[in-house]
Design a protein around this nucleic acid. Structure first.
Lengths: 202, 202
DNA sequence: GTCTATATGGCGATAGAC
DNA sequence: GTCTATCGCCATATAGAC
């Protein structure tokens, strides 16, 4: 990216991200990754022993994109409304930078449900710790009584799904005008926050 | 299903649904579909000329699953709140019957964005006609001023995403207990409706 | 480290017997 | 209509020169 003269191993990983994230494991070809990286196909095997190994490197990267920010925001010392606003805002921003990641993860986990476990353990996120924040907010009367899991899942749904379903939605509702759909998604930083807050206020 | 002695062509289509919906076009093998149907591989080519043709038959089926019910409910003569309740309820019910369909459609449209157009035309759904219903409800003061597209997209997000992300959510929040997650999704017929209504009431 | 050439296996598709 | 056998291609992976 910034570094034009990057070493081969990194060039390969970048190229592999571009291809695997868009087309998934089964839909990707090693030749295509090599072309994307402007290197010879056999170099892929020199640096990463197999397609599977290269794929796993990309998968681990993908999972990490969507973990770290969450914890810090939710556990910070702010009113719950402000936490939701920050979460939605930063999550949608990440999705603009990595729009293919969610569908990629969903797709590949159906193929092999175990690939997630390892990547998730490394991240050190404790689901219960997150949910407890919402339980406390309910106790303090900041939000209405509602299963915190619903809050988290609904928030993730409202952020992620519009990116995952972009090709469909763009076609059906936006005449396949990509810019228009992107502007619509940008505005959702505000509208999703508003939607969430109205839905869970006491 | 009910008919044990079904003809070969139908057996093939059923088997193809099972395989394609779970693994997608690139991840599926003709041999696997043949095994699933308990027939010889070359019979697939006898009834459907190619893998692509067989796939398209499955894709058209998938799209149709999620079209017809929508229109009737949204355009019916009922209060908007009741429409939303019925929509969420029936949509989640369809998802219980065909949990792989949304992710399948999303996945394959990324591969080839044109496959949707044909299947969508046949269905005869007019997006503007649907959105107009919400504009009218806003004019009558039944709901707060909000872009109808947000309502539709949010409703679809809240229904679909929890099914698409099932393998992840189940693992992270339910100790990989499938029954528990399914009961949670069943309850969402009520909680999503409630969530939606609170979010858009005037 | 990087290349060309090639091995090896799998998959979609077809030919042809019955 | 259904089967067996096989073709031809393409993809992963490796061998070996430089």
């Amino acid at each position: 990216m910034t570094q034009e003269e990057t070493n081969t191993e990194e060039k390969i990983l970048e190229a592999a991200k571009n291809v695997f994230l868009k087309k998934g494991m089964a839909g990707s070809r090693m030749q295509e990754i090599a072309d994307e990286a402007n290197i010879n196909k056999s170099l892929l095997h020199y640096y990463y022993r197999s397609k599977e190994k290269l794929f796993l490197a990309v998968f681990r990267f993908a999972v990490k994109q969507f973990i770290p920010g969450i914890r810090d925001i939710i556990l910070s010392e702010k009113p719950i409304v402000r936490k939701i606003e920050m979460f939605v805002d930063s999550y949608i921003e990440i999705l603009f930078q990595h729009p293919f990641v969610p569908i990629f993860i969903i797709q590949e986990i159906q193929r092999d449900p175990d690939v997630l476990s390892g990547a998730l353990m490394e991240s050190g996120v404790d689901p219960q710790e997150i949910l407890q924040v919402f339980y406390d907010a309910i106790d303090r009367g900041e939000i209405r009584p509602i299963n915190p899991l619903e809050i988290m899942l609904n928030m993730l749904s409202l952020c992620i799904f519009p990116f995952a379903a972009k090709p469909v939605m763009q076609r059906v509702f936006f005449d396949n005008n990509e810019d228009a759909y992107m502007r619509f998604l940008e505005k959702r930083k505000k509208t999703v926050t508003e939607f969430m807050i109205k839905a869970i206020k006491p």
